[in-house]
């Protein structure tokens, strides 16, 4: 305490709290601990299935509830089971074609949409949101009903054709939504200039507009592939004639309680592959940015 002037005892001494200071350090500390626990819990929740899949893939026992010893035989035997190989091949086939087709079409549609008037634009964007927001089961059933009513015209329609159409249907909105914002940022003079310089509209589309929006096209493509590769419900309703993708194969194997451990090995490999791709693209992008800065 500082030596006070005489008679100071008769005055009240103000505390720091009287000036509106509130002691929050303890609450903040408690909150910090709580937040750390929540974050760890979230990471745990997201990663525990992946971790279990990994454990299962190196487990020598076929019984899912016990761990024999570490083995890599499931990795060596991924393609031994013919039906799994077919399912993987179908998945890759459908998702690559669906991604390519919907990237091309979605980009063209988005360019068309960007030139529409406000009202027509809102109309089509509302329609565009339907496949995106609709419940998978309702979309799947809806497509199945449409395809079934065409079955008299195309008798062998169900199978890869219907599944591919369905995948294009639900991946298109993602491409359109990723490309549109890039088109809005585009300078309209760019296109006019190319016309003035004697380029025809469609070549100009290819030479001027597409390069300017390629970042949007690329992110739409990645989204489309992700959605298509992992889809279950819509594929389940729109397939036929024994054409299974990986999800349908897993679902029916689960129903028969005969899920081969090879599929765990395949899934682990896919996760590792995605991880490596992610790191590589990030490194490349970092290098490119580094290059541009100097």
């Amino acid at each position: 305490m500082i030596k006070q002037y005489p008679g100071y005892e008769q005055y009240e001494v103000a505390n720091i709290e009287d000036y509106g200071y509130k002691e929050h350090r303890l609450t903040k500390k408690i909150f910090k601990v709580f937040r750390a626990i929540v974050i760890i819990f979230a990471v745990f929740l997201m990663y525990i299935p992946i971790f279990t899949i990994f454990l299962q893939s190196i487990n020598s026992s076929t019984i899912t509830s016990e761990f024999g010893q570490i083995t890599f035989k499931w990795y060596a035997n991924i393609f031994d089971k013919g039906s799994l190989l077919t399912a993987i091949r179908n998945t890759v086939f459908i998702s690559i074609w669906a991604t390519l087709i919907s990237t091309v079409l979605g980009t063209l549609f988005a360019i068309g949409i960007s030139t529409l008037e406000r009202k027509a634009k809102r109309h089509i964007m509302l329609l565009n949101n339907i496949p995106l927001l609709n419940a998978d089961i309702v979309s799947g059933i809806g497509l199945m009903l449409i395809f079934s009513s065409l079955i008299h015209i195309f008798p062998y329609f169900f199978g890869w054709r219907t599944m591919l159409l369905a995948h294009i249907f639900f991946t298109l909105p993602y491409v359109v939504l990723s490309v549109l914002p890039k088109l809005r940022e585009l300078d309209p003079n760019l296109f006019e200039a190319s016309l003035d310089l004697g380029v025809k509209p469609y070549p100009s589309l290819y030479k001027v507009i597409i390069p300017a929006i390629k970042a949007g096209i690329f992110s739409g493509m990645i989204l489309a592939f992700t959605m298509s590769f992992d889809d279950f419900v819509i594929s389940y309703y729109t397939t036929g004639n024994g054409f299974d993708n990986l999800s349908i194969w897993i679902y029916s194997s689960m129903g028969r309680k005969s899920l081969s451990p090879s599929v765990y090995a395949f899934s682990t490999l896919v996760t590792i592959l995605f991880f490596i791709l992610l790191i590589i693209t990030n490194l490349l992008r970092g290098r490119k940015q580094h290059h541009e800065n100097h």
């Binding site: 997201m46 525990i48 992946i50 279990t52 299962q56 899912t64 509830s65 761990f67 999800s247």
Partner: peptide, 28 residues
């Protein structure tokens, strides 16, 4: 992206794995 990496492996398989470790006797 690394945090949400699990999103890229098959959803049904992840659920099946979750079901397996929710049983009283499981691999873990």
């Amino acid at each position: 992206t690394i945090l949400i990496l699990p999103m890229w492996s098959n959803m049904l398989l992840r659920i099946e794995a979750l079901k397996n470790i929710m049983e009283p006797h499981n691999i873990i």
